[in-house]
Design a binder for these strands. Sequence first.
DNA 1: CATATTATAATGGGATATCATGGGTTTTTA
DNA 2: TAAAAACCCATGATATCCCATTATAATATG
Lengths: 156, 156
Amino acid sequence: MFLSTSHNKIDLKCRVSIPASYRLNLEKESSPLILFKSLQFKCIEGTTANRMQQYIDAIDQLNALSDEAAVLRMMMADAFEMKFDSGGRVIIPETLMDFSGLTDKAVFMGIGESFYIWSPSEYQIQYDYSQQILKEKGPPKLILSKSNLLKDVSNE
Amino acid sequence: MFLSTSHNKIDLKCRVSIPASYRLNLEKESSPLILFKSLQFKCIEGTTANRMQQYIDAIDQLNALSDEAAVLRMMMADAFEMKFDSGGRVIIPETLMDFSGLTDKAVFMGIGESFYIWSPSEYQIQYDYSQQILKEKGPPKLILSKSNLLKDVSNE
DNA sequence: CATATTATAATGGGATATCATGGGTTTTTA
DNA sequence: TAAAAACCCATGATATCCCATTATAATATG
């Protein structure tokens, strides 16, 4: 699992340390790290090769000629397999830096199966929004059974 | 299961002993310990990795842009996988210390599938509040099904 | 029944390893 | 042949490990 949040520096060579716990998780899954443009937000998403395949399969299930599928394929085309240096750093590709608005600081946000890399300002927006939702609506009412089923009863 | 209450000290390195019975439970489930910010209270919640995986699986079943998904992602971002030292202690991350108002003492409160870590003062507030509700409204009505689902219907 | 004995749990502190970061040097490759 | 990427080593801060000590609970003993 990718969990927790950390704020790391991006140096002049566009190098950034991937949090040790994330690297450990990749090692455990014996997977390289894949970075690509988030399909939902102005940030980079990082994940395992397996998880990436899931995304690709999901796109395949859409109408191949639809605009939606075309857009998703474009996003996926900008996916990169990363190489670590001896200190656990990667060089963030320029297209991803530009897309996510990253400059000198990166916020790593673990969300389970994958993680996001935000610019500090975009991260703050996202965080504040989530906090606001939590205040207004309260915690999501999920019933977690042993069979991993999810039932949303918020409208009942 | 995580049960019973205990008061342990937090030392200058932010180390705290996790109650032996909780550790035994984790060992039985052969699961690491995950700590995260409670979505409901000003306290830390601890649980098994298995339990956390259920929440992660739940995210995939929601619309990625939904409010519920945003809150659950934030929950993952504020979660940490803990490592025990030889004495059964963990180091509480600074963000969790700040969030829950912990300083030098921690109150552990087992609630079954997970447990809470309170500052003594917050614990007292919560305890008093619960006692008051119990007096005013009487015991909550619970439906315990065979499938181990728990649904609180006290507000319905 | 009170007290001694033992085992287990919780705590304290210092040595060691790891992590995030900086900067230099060599090797690609465009 | 420049620019970029890969490789190398150095460093301060922090987490991890290890061993010693104190406290609490569990059992036994006079």
